[in-house]
Design a protein around this nucleic acid. Structure first.
Lengths: 222, 222
DNA sequence: ATTAATTTTGACCAAACGGTCAGGTTTTTA
DNA sequence: TAAAAACCTGACCGTTTGGTCAAAATTAAT
């Protein structure tokens, strides 16, 4: 019997039918990434996530059930990012450009998605309770396959032999450092936030280290 | 923190009064380091710290007052470790041995005090709420002074010019990675825990990267 | 228009949280 | 010894936690 009152405030952001779920899940996931990144898993509260998403807490539980399931969903999104770019490291490509492009892509990711990096770092520091299988399967297999690329390059005399696990470990450590430890690097550079140039110089330094480590001449001596 | 009235500076050694205080504070600090490392600041509970120390929770508050004060005490202990070894990087020494020794010392620290590294990493990821001053003063000054060493080495033709902030950032990132991300490196190497040899190989790789980055010949020739 | 499905949310709960405190015990000092 | 200082801790407190739920509102399907 009631005439529907004009819910104008609600209607401004009208989503296409059936898309409410998608939009709200995205809102919650983005808020959760930030809170998990800065507070850690145990320190993050569903109330804080809800507030940041602009929704009542019960709504968060409606879409994701438990805090743990929400964390798993956030992590799922992030793991895809990590494996990205790696597939462009192939035997056919030139080692210097393949490794250089990869490192620069990782540094760019640190600048564009620092929160994702921090969530991942927190997960590793805690001992990877939700990512053991990912590490032992997907990631290990990927590194194994990239190890063969490095061996092929070495056999062709294009690089010196290098331990692939340590090489990738150091690349990941160095690149993600500019997301996870941004506040430290910023303090050392006397900045409140890192600028685009800082990331470029960081990438240059890391590329130079890695390529020369592999015996490739790079940025030759001045 | 309140300090009891002067208990005569002389009799501080064997079986002196205050022995209990020293021992229990050490017990609590060690337990706190572990819990803060694995759970983060917000995730750590005073109850968990007390249980790990084998003491009732009220005892923890008796010695340290608040959780925040306890965290500050843990962090205080750790910051000293970080600045250690750096003073052996001097203009007079040979760059290769000075940097090599420093990197190996940092890797050794990652193996021997992984929890300290994790607490520090957590603090940085959160944006350094308790360490802003340390970063902007002590640490920045130290890096500035080490930058002069690098410049002197470069002026003497012993190394190529390198940005000191990025060089040290990458050294710290790479070395501490073997503490903070031990579970990831272990998974890639197919081990449950890293062995002494793994740390040695990690140090070799990092030393090779850094020295060659600086234009120093190192390792298998080419 | 009616029904069915989905979405929303204030109110609520038991457990866990950081912290307090009174009153006891042990150790040190005089 | 006796007094004083230091230490210990079970019990407790107000708040916050992750999670639930029923009822209402909205949207989609018939």
């Amino acid at each position: 019997m009631e005439v529907p009152e004009a819910k104008t405030l609600e209607a401004k952001d009208a989503a296409s039918p059936g898309q409410i779920r998608v939009r709200n899940r995205a809102l919650i996931l983005a808020a959760a990434e930030e809170v998990f990144a800065t507070q850690g898993y145990r320190g993050a509260t569903t109330a804080a996530i809800a507030k940041k998403a602009g929704l009542p807490k019960a709504n968060v539980h409606y879409y994701f059930g438990t805090k743990e399931a929400l964390y798993a969903a956030v992590l799922e999104d992030i793991l895809g990012l990590w494996l990205g770019e790696l597939d462009r490291i192939t035997e056919e490509r030139d080692p210097a450009t393949a490794l250089g492009d990869y490192i620069r892509a990782k540094v760019r990711l640190s600048r564009e998605r620092p929160l994702a990096s921090k969530v991942y770092a927190n997960e590793m520091i805690r001992g990877a309770p939700h990512t053991r299988d990912f590490l032992k399967n997907e990631l290990r297999n990927l590194v194994t396959s990239k190890a063969k690329v490095l061996e092929a390059w070495a056999a062709a005399g294009k690089i010196e032999p290098v331990d692939p696990v340590h090489l990738f470990s150091v690349i990941w450590a160095a690149t993600q450092h500019y997301a996870d430890f941004e506040v430290q690097v910023g303090a050392l550079l006397g900045r409140r936030q890192l600028a685009a140039d800082d990331y470029d110089e960081a990438a240059d330094t890391i590329v130079r280290m890695v390529l020369r480590c592999c015996g490739i001449r790079y940025g030759s001596g001045r």
